[in-house]
Computed example of a mutant assay.
Amino acid sequence: MYVAVKGGEAAIANAHRLLADRRRGDRSVPSITIEQIAGQLGLAVDRVMAEASLYDRSLAALAIRQARGDMIEAIFILRAYRTTLPRFGTSRPLDTTSMAIERRISATYKDLPGGQMLGATFDYTHRLLDPSLLTDAPVEEPALRQPDDEVSLMRVSEILAQEDLIEADGELPADHVTGDLTREPLEFPMSRDLRLQALARGDEGFLLALGYSTQRGYGNAHPFVGEIRIGEVEVEFDVPELGFAVSLGCIQVTECQMVNQFKGSAKAPPQFTRGYGLVFGQSERKSMSMSLVDRALRATELGEDITAAAQDEEFVISHSDNVQSTGFVEHLKLPHYVDFQAELDLVRRMRRDFEASRQAGNDDDFMEAAQ
């Protein structure tokens, strides 16, 4: 037993060395730096930060490098590191109305007050491979907005609210304490704040598939992108000793408000309702998917029938976390020798019983034919 354990330890140590070798790759090619990953693979970094629930571009880039580009492994690594950090308190809610906007679009109004701001997007590219990227070709400098162009832009929801055509933001009870998904066990049904936390760090691909399903008839959704905003917002923290809030700096976020039809109920008139998504970094697909699923999960609240997977809170939240999902799936690679031997013995005995019953049946058929 001891020799087997020592042999296993040596094999594992060698596997680690082999992993480091494969991670480094061809030694004739310069090693990729953390700065290059953070600067040139920014959307990958944004996804890792969002799904690890930790806003730190350098650490997210390090996790991507350590994981050889495996995004879920990088998220796992960064989330594990996050659990080691001390917690000093809770920041104030982000004021996205004062966002320094880099990109802002709406699918509901062409002449949006303040205008559409396209920003950096793949939306208008041809999705053709660009051979010029095979070399370090010079890049043309873009025309940037001047600082004096910064204005507070009216939201689409505010435009609709002027005619009372969309549900109000609502007010939280004065004694409401925001939950913390990272410190409290999951309990169903969940409050919306906890549900949004789970969706914000949920797997982008899973939420994308669920959001897509609601558009294909599995959830009775007819959504419009009310508004997507990308930009920097200030994070403030209340310091009890000082008696006022201090700024911790700015972070980039993507916010999406999805507008949905609602035929009304006994308590509410026909109006538009909303789904909401807020994600670290530039993560439009994730914020859109999140807002679609958020609206679907409000079915019970709005008196709608639950007919689809995207409307089932326990199903969505329990399966959206890619770190937990990875653990359940990948643990199958670990030794299950004893369990399998028990299964193997069971199948052998069942097979013997089957063969015996079949032989007995053949003997009975033979006797009937002889008579």
Rank of each mutant, 00 (worst) to 15 (best):
D21H: 05
Y276M: 03
Q162P: 08
L62S: 08
H319V: 09
M154A: 11
L199R: 03
I228T: 05
P240Q: 08
D111S: 08
A221H: 07
L19G: 13
R87F: 00
E35Y: 15
N220Y: 09
F122P: 10
E284H: 13
H176S: 12
S53D: 09
V323T: 03
D203T: 04
A67V: 03
K263F: 14
G231S: 02
P269K: 11
Y337I: 06
S53T: 12
R351K: 14
L207V: 01
Q162G: 09
L194G: 02
L18K: 12
V29T: 10
V246E: 10
M190W: 10
F206L: 07
E284N: 14
A245F: 13
V246N: 09
C256M: 13
E158S: 07
L210I: 04
A13S: 13
R351Y: 11
V259F: 12
T307C: 08
D193H: 03
L196P: 09
N260A: 11
F280R: 06
R295G: 13
I34D: 10
P240F: 07
A67L: 02
V239R: 09
A221P: 02
D95K: 00
R22H: 14
F315C: 04
F354W: 06
E227I: 09
H126G: 08
E140Y: 15
I159Q: 11
Q252L: 05
R145F: 10
L54G: 06
T135P: 09
R195H: 06
V225W: 05
Q197C: 02
V338S: 11
F122Q: 12
V293I: 11
P147D: 14
P138D: 12
G211M: 04
R82E: 00
A74M: 02
A10T: 03
T84K: 07
G277K: 13
K6W: 12
L297H: 04
A20Q: 07
D130H: 10
T90M: 00
D353I: 02
E204P: 00
A209Y: 00
G243M: 07
C256L: 11
G231K: 01
R23M: 14
I37L: 01
A120S: 09
G281N: 03
I37E: 00
E158Q: 09
D21A: 11
L59F: 06
S106M: 04
I12V: 09
D149H: 05
D148W: 14
V233Q: 02
G205Q: 01
T273M: 13
R192E: 07
A296E: 05
Q162C: 05
P138G: 12
A38C: 06
P185I: 13
V253I: 04
R155N: 14
I159D: 11
A63Y: 01
R127L: 06
H331F: 10
H16W: 10
L43Y: 15
Y109W: 08
A120M: 08
I34H: 10
G303T: 10
M190A: 10
Q271N: 11
I72D: 04
E51M: 10
M99E: 00
Q324E: 06
Q371F: 15
H331R: 14
V239P: 14
G249R: 07
M1W: 15
F354H: 06
A38R: 06
L297C: 03
M258F: 04
A369T: 13
Y124M: 01
D294S: 08
A168K: 14
G89L: 00
T214D: 02
G89A: 03
S213E: 01
